[in-house]
């Protein structure tokens, strides 16, 4: 499998680490235990197109949000995490 890192270009799978479902958002500090429980434990595992977190540890150390078909390994989109690279949200 090959992933086109927005910072490094097309690189081989071995440079990346997989984390999993990128959909859940970390709840606000006051969201309460149920919301955090859902965030920590309820992950989708889709047979098909899914948004996932991958880490380019063998390259630029960016966290990436990758849209991948888990049945075919086809990657349709790669975007950097909000804070990847020099980007600062709301800076």
């Amino acid at each position: 499998m090959r992933i086109v890192c927005p910072f490094c270009g097309e690189r081989e799978l071995g440079e990346f680490t997989y984390l999993g479902d990128a959909k859940p958002q970390r709840p606000a500090a006051d969201a309460g235990e149920d919301a955090v429980y859902d965030y920590v434990y309820l992950r989708d595992n889709i047979a098909g197109v899914m948004s996932e977190h991958w880490y380019h540890g063998g390259g630029c150390r960016s966290w990436l949000k990758i849209t991948r078909n888990t049945l075919t390994h086809e990657i349709s989109a790669v975007e950097p995490a909000a804070g990847a690279g020099a980007a600062k949200v709301g800076a």
Binding site: T17, H53, Y55, W63, A82, G83, A84, K88
Partner: peptide, 20 residues
């Protein structure tokens, strides 16, 4: 050493991107 670096990058880039 390696896993913590990855974890901190996740915190910085994904969880708390607002921090400079």
């Amino acid at each position: 050493a390696g896993p913590v670096m990855q974890h901190l990058e996740f915190c910085r880039q994904v969880l708390f991107p607002e921090f400079d």
